[in-house]
Design a protein around this nucleic acid. Structure first.
Lengths: 338, 338
DNA sequence: TGCCACAACTTGATCGTTCAAACTCACCCT
DNA sequence: AGGGTGAGTTTGAACGATCAAGTTGTGGCA
């Protein structure tokens, strides 16, 4: 393949190979329609000229760009962003396998959010969107549905059971395996630190922790609640440590909470892992730096599902029958090994 | 603007307004060529139909997509990624102001890196690239130059003074303002925790810290070196704390180091801010969570410069005379306020 | 030999936009 | 009145790909 600035067009390849444009096109898309020797000749020329079909021309013809939009949000909390980044990464890596690519955009004040989404579709910049950080009362799913703009969400669309274009982490399962892991490591009691009851994500995670106790006919361990803030988490962790005692463990609904538990434990001279087991949720950069065991989000599976879903919808398929819950794994580090 | 799935084309607008395609096109790009009443009529119809020019058609015509590629790297350390995310965000937000948008891609093993870059340009998926995490001996700048593919780098191209398509944070200035801030806060001595000598980024930052002392004819404070790892940072911070003593401060070359200092200080019962001043570098999520004062990267200025640079190069302009150093600011938090 | 079927390949038209060239017409000057 | 000027607008062509419809040629069979 030669390295030259001017890109080769299908016509140049056709001329060089002594065939027509269509034969070149067929060689790439429907090779079975081209006779052996011809196919080989065309392929050699394609290789020599470094020909790649123009995405712009293909988009114009097919009325499909292959691009999926993803909004990056500056206003998200540090914790949210800690998940957003690995997720864009997963999307970007998996997109080619779905014949697409990812276009990121930020919400600047100039665009009143939703019309910005519409503009991107109207101008054929993207075919569809992937939403993250969907929250209860999020106007985007409804609005996009109304505008007939395809989308798929990372995160359950909690208030709207009829909207099924989503994939999410099975939070209950995450806390289940976290709790089971801590018990298997020999920690005496497993407490839970999460958000105040009523948060759907939080309640879901707590359910997994509680379920393990029920399965084993064990009395429920101690629990505490805090808002998503290091100070609050550390403060709430204190009493919890008293209850589980040295040799116990705490499963947390987020890495921030796990960090708080670690700080509280360190303050009383307890070493994480040895004196107290700790497990976080998200396996974010925080957990990595602090060497905290954490529930690892199955971001690649989720990215694959969402991208596949969009591809199907763009191909005319009806919405899926239901959303998809994906089971997370566990990244084990020193905070849960004695 | 009506909300309908089918996008309006320029022809539909032209017909509805009783003018030709070209007049519609002119109304958007060269309004001065269109007579007042006609212009108004066309604009009204555009608004009514919600017309937006097709990016695909424009790209085909102009041989320019407006897309800038940015590689997201899974292999980067947690710290690197902590900067990457806010940077993609800045790029995504600023791109529209430069008539462009950002396409992210991951380096999957299927593509041998560099040819992946070339493929994206050949297939007209992107016009140019923005590079981050450029390191000494990075093959990309040279290779892209050779392939005549426009790029702009976030980070000096250290080994190659003849390559000028970059913008970087003025690290010396960052440590200068950090050191000055700590002294102004009344901390007695300001030490420095950085990477082992020889790292160009590290030496640059250290220079700013040293310069403040020289300016004020003060003896240089104590310093220590460590690798970019929390354990190493905490270990190196211990002796440094002994040297600056309670009431002193430490300016760090990264947030990870600052966190290490905080851990070491906490271990001896010193409260950050009150007993010891701490300042990090990057103002990353780590600093935010731990409430650490930190040097804040001017990511939006850098994004603007790089995007503008690419736009110029695509317009045929020669490479810039020199790279650009942008002065960072300071995000002041409790770790440097008594 | 004549006809059909089918494989292999080519040609024309189209996607939506913009540049360049052509056209129209009111206006001015001689 | 005739011709030139120029503002305002229209038309044709092109960007590069693919679908649909056309053409060519080979082989089989009656």
């Amino acid at each position: 393949m030669t390295t030259m600035a001017g890109r080769a067009t299908i016509r140049e390849v056709a001329d060089a190979a002594g065939v027509s444009r269509q034969t070149v096109s067929n060689s790439l898309i429907h090779p079975e329609r081209v006779k052996g020797p011809t196919l080989e000749r065309v392929r050699r020329v394609i290789d020599e000229l470094g020909y790649r079909p123009s995405n712009a021309a293909q988009s114009l013809r097919s009325q499909r760009t292959g691009a999926v939009g993803f909004e990056l949000n500056a206003t998200g909390s540090a914790t949210r962003n800690a998940v957003s980044f690995p997720f864009v990464l997963a999307l970007s890596e998996r997109a080619p396998a779905h014949n697409g690519h990812i276009v990121t955009f930020g919400t600047t004040s100039e665009h009143p959010l939703l019309s910005g989404y519409e503009d991107m579709v109207r101008s054929q910049l993207v075919d569809a969107f992937i939403l993250a950080d969907t929250h209860e009362g999020d106007p985007r799913p409804d609005w996009l549905d109304g505008a007939r703009i395809p989308y798929a969400a990372f995160g359950r669309l909690w208030g709207r059971p009829e909207l099924t274009s989503w994939a999410d982490v099975d939070g209950a399962h995450g806390l289940r395996i976290a709790t089971e892991h801590l018990l298997a490591q020999g920690y005496s009691t497993v407490g839970f630190l999460g958000w105040p009851a009523g948060s759907q994500v939080g309640d879901d995670r707590r359910r997994g922790w509680a379920a393990v106790h029920e399965d084993r006919s064990m009395p429920l361990g101690p629990e505490a609640m805090a808002v998503q803030d290091l100070g609050a988490a550390t403060a709430a962790a204190g009493p919890l440590l008293d209850q589980v005692g040295r040799g116990g463990a705490i499963a947390c609904a987020s890495d921030m909470f796990a960090l708080g538990v670690e700080r509280a434990a360190a303050a009383r001279g307890w070493r994480s892992g040895t004196d107290i087991g700790i497990c976080g949720f998200d396996a974010s950069v925080i957990a990595e730096i602090e060497s905290l065991t954490s529930v690892a989000l199955p971001l690649y599976e989720i990215a694959d599902h969402l991208l596949g879903l969009l591809q199907d919808r763009l191909g005319g398929a009806p919405p899926p029958a239901a959303g998809l819950l994906v089971e997370p794994g566990l990244t084990i580090r020193s905070s849960s090994t004695r």
